Computed example of a mutant assay.
Amino acid sequence: MTESHVGRVIDTRKAEGRGALISYLPIGFPDLDTSVDAAVALAENGVDILELGLPYSDPVMDGPAIQAATQQALSNGFRLSDAFTAVERIRARVDVPVVIMTYWNPVLQYGPTRFADDLKSAGGAGLITPDITPDSADDWIAESERTGLDRIFLAAPSSSEARLKQIVAASRGFVYTVSTMGVTGARADVDAAARDLVSRLRDAGAERACVGIGISTAEQVSEVLEYADGAIVGSALVSSLADGGVAGLARTAAALSGRR
Rank of each mutant, 00 (worst) to 15 (best):
T70M: 15
T70D: 14
T70C: 09
Q71L: 05
Q71W: 00
L74K: 03
L74V: 06
L74W: 11
S75M: 11
N76Q: 14
N76H: 09
F78C: 00
L80D: 12
S81K: 14
D82M: 13
D82H: 15
F84M: 11
T85E: 12
T85A: 10
A86Q: 10
E88W: 03
R89P: 03
R89W: 03
R91Y: 05
A92S: 10
A92N: 14
R93C: 04
V96T: 15
P97L: 02
V98N: 10
M101N: 07
T102Q: 03
T102I: 08
T102H: 03
Y103V: 02
Y103A: 13
W104M: 14
W104T: 14
W104P: 04
P106Y: 06
P106M: 07
V107D: 04
V107T: 08
V107I: 15
V107M: 09
V107G: 00
L108F: 12
Q109N: 05
Y110S: 11
G111R: 11
P112I: 07
P112E: 04
T113V: 09
T113Q: 11
R114W: 00
F115T: 13
F115G: 11
F115E: 14
F115Q: 15
A116S: 07
A116K: 04
D117L: 08
D117Y: 00
D117N: 09
D117P: 00
D118P: 11
A122D: 09
A122K: 07
A122I: 04
G123F: 13
G124T: 07
G124Y: 10
G124R: 09
A125D: 12
A125K: 09
A125I: 07
G126T: 03
L127W: 03
L127F: 12
L127P: 03
I128D: 04
I128T: 11
T129L: 15
P130D: 04
P130Y: 11
D131A: 10
I132T: 15
I132Q: 06
I132Y: 06
T133V: 14
P134Q: 06
P134N: 02
P134Y: 09
P134H: 08
P134R: 12
P134I: 01
D135W: 15
S136F: 09
S136Q: 08
A137V: 07
D139V: 05
D139A: 11
W140I: 05
W140K: 01
A142K: 08
A142C: 02
A142G: 00
E143T: 00
S144K: 01
E145A: 12
E145W: 04
E145C: 01
R146C: 02
T147H: 01
T147D: 01
T147L: 01
G148T: 01
G148A: 05
G148L: 00
